[in-house]
């Protein structure tokens, strides 16, 4: 059994806006094992990015973690001081963002920025750090790294920039890499390059990756374990096979049906009806119930509990509870 390095327990994160309190993450639980790729998938406003930012505690000023624990190797990092957090970010856990252009400083050369990150988190200084910068660029497949370190971010293409971002994030060999929509801004062919690179690096360096994305294709391609989020809550979590072949939550089912598929060409897509959730106006019960075709009365009134499915993965849907109850009752009669 592999070792758990990060475990998130009952995480609540909320933002204070002038229109009221927004509960962006509402009781999220999961474990991340060493050397695994965990995917967090959901639509915009599902709280997937906020969950990732909460782990690094890089939320915007008006956001804060209101409840829950984030245990890194058994230590609760929500209780860390700012100084402890600084060394946690980078050394233990680092992040790459969606837009590589805005996450690189345009007035410094690539090498300069890489060197700074290396000097900040490792003992290497000066020439040593520069050598490491070149080594890192080489690792992420940037051609002619000696030349590239002298270039400015605008001289690089989108794919190159994302490679530099990955090099920067990996410079201190973190245990966890959080990738927030790392390929959304890139073209398909470049996306394929970056995904391939990430898988390769993961095998080589053995870190765990949290992949935050809305793209089910990327998730299917990359991830060992998947968390499906909707309206700040976890709908379903399990292995990739569980989620894609045995979905147990109505939202996951709907999501899988709504993607165009080679096998269903010529047929109509089956979209999820309704509009995405308004975080300012959350339903009392299950967040998905207004759009769910099989919603029951209880779904409107009560938040569904997380339940283990027969195959071992977890889903939060009242329909499963109902099925379980019926099975138990049926079984009881037979005895």
């Amino acid at each position: 059994m592999s070792e758990t390095i990060l475990s998130v327990k009952n995480l609540h994160t909320s933002f204070t806006t002038d229109k009221g309190e927004v509960l962006a993450v509402n009781g999220v639980n999961f474990n991340l094992d060493k050397g695994k790729i965990l995917g967090i998938v959901g639509e915009s406003g599902s709280g997937k990015s906020v969950t990732a930012y909460s782990i690094l505690q890089i939320l915007e000023k008006n956001g804060r973690i209101t409840e829950g624990q984030i245990l890194y190797k058994g230590e609760d990092i929500t209780k860390y001081t700012e100084k402890q957090l600084r060394s946690f970010r980078g050394k233990c856990c680092s992040i790459i963002f969606q837009d590589p252009m805005t996450s690189l400083n345009p007035v410094f050369t690539v090498g300069n920025q890489l060197k700074e990150a290396i000097e900040l988190h490792t003992g290497r200084k000066g020439k040593d750090a520069e050598a490491r910068a070149v080594e890192m660029l080489n690792l992420v497949g940037v051609n002619e790294p000696e030349k590239r370190v002298k270039q400015y971010p605008y001289e690089l293409s989108g794919g190159m920039r994302q490679r530099v971002m990955i090099a920067m994030a990996l410079a201190c060999e973190p245990d966890i890499l959080i990738a927030d929509e790392p390929t959304t801004a890139l073209d398909v062919t470049i996306q394929a390059q970056i995904l391939e690179l990430m898988q390769e690096l993961q095998k080589k360096l053995g870190m765990a990756i949290i992949m935050v994305t809305h793209d089910l294709g990327v998730i299917a391609d990359m991830c060992d374990e998947i968390i499906v989020m909707y309206g700040g809550r976890v709908c379903e979590r399990g292995t990739a096979e569980d989620i894609f072949y045995r979905p147990a939550h109505e939202y996951t089912k709907g999501l899988l049906q709504s993607i165009p598929n080679v096998d269903t060409i010529g047929e109509k897509l089956k979209p999820i009806p309704g509009t995405p959730i308004n975080l300012l106006n959350m339903p009392k019960g299950c967040a998905f119930c207004p759009r769910c075709e099989n919603a029951m009365k209880i779904c409107i009134e009560q938040v569904p509990p997380e339940m283990q499915m027969p195959d071992g993965h977890f889903a939060s849907c009242w329909l499963n509870v109902k099925a379980e109850m019926e099975a138990q009752q049926g079984g009881g009669k037979n005895e």
Partner: peptide
Amino acid sequence: LDVSIQAQVVN
């Protein structure tokens, strides 16, 4: 658009 909404609009 989000995947679930994308399907609505495509339809």
